[in-house]
Simulated assay, not measured.
Amino acid sequence: MRRAALRRHAARLTLWLLGSGAALAAMPARAVDCRDTDFRGNRYTVCEVDPATEDMRLFLYDKGGAPYGQFEAINARLQARGQQLAFAMNAGMYHEDRAPVGHYVEDGTELMRVIPNAGPGNFGMLPNGVFCIGEGTARVIETLAYAANPPKCRFATQSGPMLVIDGELHPRFLPDSTSRYIRNGVGTTEAGDRAVFVMSGNAVTFHDFASFFRDGLGLPEALYFDGNVSRLYAPELGRADYGRMMGPVVGVVVDSE
């Protein structure tokens, strides 16, 4: 009993960075399930969220219209309301001013329209897709399907390319590719009852990354977020990545204790 109690206590204590200092923050033990794992010779960090029970949101601009840019800026805003992040990750490509490249909805307000056409870079490597957070659900939806029958999304972010579409890898991914980056993205179930965020622990190809979502996690839909900027906030693992200023960020919000 004592060991079990100690494990429960330890699971609720995490070390996370705030500005230049450090603070201990207590997290609900089951808000987000994060773990490190290996698959086919590559390392990954996986964070699973139940959209039906957790408060998952997208963050981009503060009330003054300035991009948050960093996880600690979001946390500072939440702390004024007695809340904090239990998990966060950069969530979609953006321009130099950190405006989203594609479709973006925050708290029901559309800030950027859907971009349906092909274009340069990874974003324009069709098919791309939209990560939609609805009422108790979270789904990755291919862009043209999304545009043809727009779902009700409280939050949405468009990115690309799709990693997995209806259980199939993106047709342009090559097993023998030499393009390797630290990559991050999200996969969901068909029902939208499970959202799984992944960041590679080493540089991987698109084919490797997509295969992990499909074959390692059993997810039929997955969307690429980024590779030049891949950042994770997972206090459960003692992790708070810092670096270049970010655009859209996805996070799970919990009450502070």
Rank of each mutant, 00 (worst) to 15 (best):
R194D: 01
G167T: 00
F39C: 11
N202V: 13
E142P: 03
V49F: 05
N117C: 11
E168A: 10
M246C: 10
R43L: 13
V130F: 04
C153A: 04
F197W: 03
S159K: 08
P220E: 00
G129A: 02
G227M: 12
N228D: 14
A5Q: 15
Q79F: 10
M93G: 11
F131Q: 07
S211T: 04
S20D: 10
L217M: 08
V49D: 03
N75V: 09
P28Q: 07
A22R: 12
R30L: 07
N128C: 00
A10Q: 08
L223Q: 01
G129P: 03
S20N: 13
N184P: 10
H95G: 08
N128E: 07
A80C: 09
E142V: 02
H170Q: 06
F212P: 12
L58I: 04
E142L: 03
A234C: 15
E96F: 12
R183Y: 04
G187R: 01
N149D: 06
L17M: 14
G167V: 01
Y233V: 14
L223G: 02
R183A: 06
G65F: 01
L17H: 14
M199E: 09
G243V: 12
T143Y: 05
A10G: 04
E48K: 06
E48F: 00
D241K: 15
A86R: 01
T53L: 01
N117R: 15
A76V: 13
Y68C: 06
I74K: 09
I115L: 10
V105W: 00
G69K: 04
D36Y: 04
P67G: 09
K152P: 13
A4R: 12
A31Q: 03
G136Y: 02
R139I: 08
Y104C: 07
D62E: 04
N122Q: 14
E257I: 11
V46G: 06
R77E: 08
N42R: 15
F59D: 00
V114I: 06
F212H: 11
G108M: 04
T45L: 10
L58G: 06
P100S: 05
R180K: 13
E236Q: 11
V204Y: 04
M125E: 08
E110H: 08
G124S: 07
A210F: 02
S256Q: 10
G247E: 08
G19D: 07
V164C: 00
D55N: 05
F213A: 11
P235F: 05
K152V: 14
I74S: 03
H207N: 09
V252H: 00
A118H: 09
P120M: 10
S20Y: 02
P248A: 01
E168G: 05
D208T: 14
M27E: 06
H170F: 03
E135S: 14
R172A: 08
E190I: 07
A203E: 13
A147C: 08
L18T: 14
I115E: 08
L144F: 03
R57E: 03
G218S: 09
L6N: 11
A80S: 12
L223D: 00
I182S: 14
Q83V: 07
L13V: 12
G69A: 00
A99R: 15
Y68F: 07
L18M: 15
F206H: 10
T137I: 01
V105Y: 00
G108E: 02
A99K: 15
M1E: 11
G185P: 01
A4I: 14
R35W: 09
